[in-house]
Simulated scan of single mutants.
Amino acid sequence: MSIQSEELRTFVAVVEAGSLSAAAEVLEQTTSGVSRALSRLEEKLGASLLTRTTRRMELTEEGRAFLEQARSILAALEQAEETIRTRTRKPVGKLRVDAAAPFMLHCVVPHVGEFRDRYPDIELELTTNDRFIDLVEQRADIAIRIGALQDSTLHARALSSARLNIVASPAYLERHGAPDSVEALEQHQLIGFSQPETLNHWPLRHSAGDRYQTRPAIRASSGETIRQLALHGQGIACLSSFMTDADIAAGRLVRVLEHYDSGYRQKISAVYYHNTQLSRRISCFLDFLQDRL
């Protein structure tokens, strides 16, 4: 006959309470019911777990060995129950999400309505920052970052990756023509980032490798500012596909030097502290966002 979890709970309760009557009170059962459950357990095991006297109860050698196992089994059952409850419980509370402004505008904001319809009890607080931040200092639960992550004690989750497009507006290309080689970029007005300088190393194959170091004539700290400058015909820029694919499809921007593309893709990752109370809200948001990406 198989052992039931209630029999294990009865045995542990008797040991911890010190007597059948005290255990019966804890379990909200009768003393005779507790006694019968304990007897059934001993019968199934074929061993005596407790030595009963008129004054006290003591564990036998078999009882001491079995107690540790019983507690482990009950703890595992409680953990399994909590896991299922957490999965089925509707996530509630505030979730603070930080991302670079272009990613927030192009990849998060368009889907907020759908997310709110699905999880109406999650209060979203969205902030933008183009640099790596201290989550505690900025009061953020999740930070979404583009590119290689710095060494960190934070949990990280890869969400997707993005191609980089070398683009210019039709108006700019009409005035200056399209470059026919990577080296020809030196005769064009380029738009780049003020920092970090690595963002101005464009993924283009040329005689010296597959990353071309540019010298921007115009620099900006935000990718969205660079996009607007490109749309207004101020030069050639290198921007993530999630920022420029819609512009390319609409004819507002045109890809140049496609045949020299090295195939490099920027990583899109989320970083966060592990927090049991937040974990359900975090996983809901990241699962949702990853599906959209």
Rank of each mutant, 00 (worst) to 15 (best):
V34N: 12
L289H: 06
R116Q: 13
Q213M: 11
E82S: 07
S32K: 12
A162C: 07
R205V: 12
T30G: 15
L8R: 00
F285A: 08
T60V: 10
V256K: 01
Q290L: 09
R96Y: 03
P203K: 11
H111F: 14
D180T: 12
L59V: 04
Q79I: 06
A158T: 12
A80E: 15
A168S: 06
L164H: 05
E123N: 11
H111V: 03
E16R: 13
V12Y: 04
R219M: 08
L229D: 05
D121E: 15
E258D: 07
D291T: 03
Q79S: 13
E197F: 07
S32F: 03
P170G: 09
D247M: 12
G113P: 03
E258F: 09
I122G: 01
I146N: 07
L286D: 04
Q4D: 14
I191S: 00
Q213N: 12
F11L: 10
R145K: 02
E7M: 13
Y272V: 09
K267M: 11
L126Q: 06
L154M: 10
Y260H: 11
S152E: 14
E174D: 15
G177M: 06
A101Q: 13
E58K: 13
A17R: 10
R64W: 10
F66S: 07
A237R: 02
E42R: 00
T198G: 02
I146R: 05
V26G: 00
A76S: 14
